[in-house]
Design a protein around this nucleic acid. Structure first.
Lengths: 222, 222
DNA sequence: ATAATTTTTTAGGTGAGGCTAAAATAATCT
DNA sequence: AGATTATTTTAGCCTCACCTAAAAAATTAT
């Protein structure tokens, strides 16, 4: 049997990995709220279970199997959050805590039943994807930069324009895939959009901004 | 924090106590599926927590506080069973196992929500009472012996007849409070009812059977 | 009443998953 | 480079809930 502790570590590693690639012992210790020494011990165990790869002093990476388990827990968590809110009328600030405990003990059947009851959702109300049973994760939603409201932040995922000249132009401004952006201002009608990249801000025509797809990070939405 | 193990012990002690008054170490070990030595250890702990009273070699009795905790767990369990069946369409053979795990992790709020969603029930579909939040337990249902169908078994709880002669007559047949009975046959219309007591069976007029109240044990119902 | 049997408790041990303090390694500053 | 600082690992302990084997107490049988 896989313990709840293991499930929690895998889930936490997955989330840290999403943000930062490789996961350090101290980051994991901080996120799990345990001492670093405890993490070292658990990471050894996870490695022996082939759920993570670990090179001492270099952090940890989920294996295929570890990722699958992490996604199962995350699927449980997000389905539960959704169910608690939709079916039981929980307010959104309370669902997380409850789901945190329930996620470890519900059966596949329970998962299946609430999944159906909710109409087989693939995304929770935060916009976060609900991993599928087979481990598939729907791509995060990509919005047109031109559709975002001021205050929205995210990461550029795609820049599509038929004109290579335009792409080069955007590139010199740091508007390339994986670059973080923030919308500062947005003129009404078809007016320009002001965006902030790593260092400076730029004013883009609405037509240009339309071809830049951004993955917004939910917690940064207006 | 009260561990799940403690909750499980209290629940089990409560149930055994219902049947047999005082609970022996070995009975508890058997019910919990652990070694007797483990029970001795846990019972010591429960006693130190003032959840049970324990006199070595004489078994264990729940304290007021212990009973309250036991009832909370049982309330969770029965509400969950009902909810799983009613709201999620679980079949009755699967609800127990799922409730067994969930009962330890749901919050008071979760309990409250499903209680309301179910219409504030006081009894589960087995007929078992659902303890109230304040620890009140509705009396077990007493059926007229004359209303039971063949196959039903239970324990006599009340024999009410104005005629002392009749009571004596029934007494000689073992039809007294706390005696187990089983309905063997039941004639149509107002015909007689054939019941089995400890050793022998008797045929009773419907009018007589009407005055005998039986507490049926759910698992023996038709 | 004594012996045999059963029940319960004690003694000592195990594995999980934590902890602290100290040692080892890596990274950073001057 | 060498020293300081930060991170990670090792070593050794703790608690919890279980275990087995042996001792003690209670019960039952002769």
């Amino acid at each position: 049997m896989i313990s709840e502790a293991v499930q929690d570590y895998l889930k936490t590693i997955y989330k840290l990995q999403e943000d930062t690639g490789v996961v350090s012992t101290s980051a994991l210790a901080e996120a799990m709220e345990v001492a670093a020494a405890s993490v070292t011990g658990m990471v050894k165990k996870l490695a022996s279970l082939k759920l993570v790869r670990h090179h001492p002093y270099q952090g940890v990476v989920l294996s295929k199997a570890g990722e699958k388990m992490a996604l199962e827990v995350i699927r449980h968590h997000r389905l539960l959050e959704l169910y608690l809110a939709e079916a039981l009328g929980y307010s959104w600030d309370k669902v997380h805590e409850e789901a945190e405990r329930l996620e470890h003990v519900i059966s596949e059947e329970f998962e299946e039943k609430i999944f159906e009851a909710l109409g087989r959702p693939t995304r929770d109300p935060h916009g976060d994807p609900i991993p599928a049973k087979d481990g598939t994760v729907v791509a995060a939603e990509h919005d047109r930069l031109s559709d975002l409201e001021p205050g929205a932040t995210g990461v550029i995922r795609q820049v599509s324009d038929s004109d290579a000249e335009v792409l080069r132009y955007l590139g010199t401004r740091g508007l390339v895939p994986n670059a973080p952006v923030e919308v500062l201002e947005k003129a009404p009608f078809n007016g320009p959009v002001t965006v902030k990249t790593r260092e400076t801000s730029h004013v883009l025509g609405r037509d240009l901004a339309q071809h830049i797809r951004v993955e917004t990070r939910p917690e940064d939405e207006t």
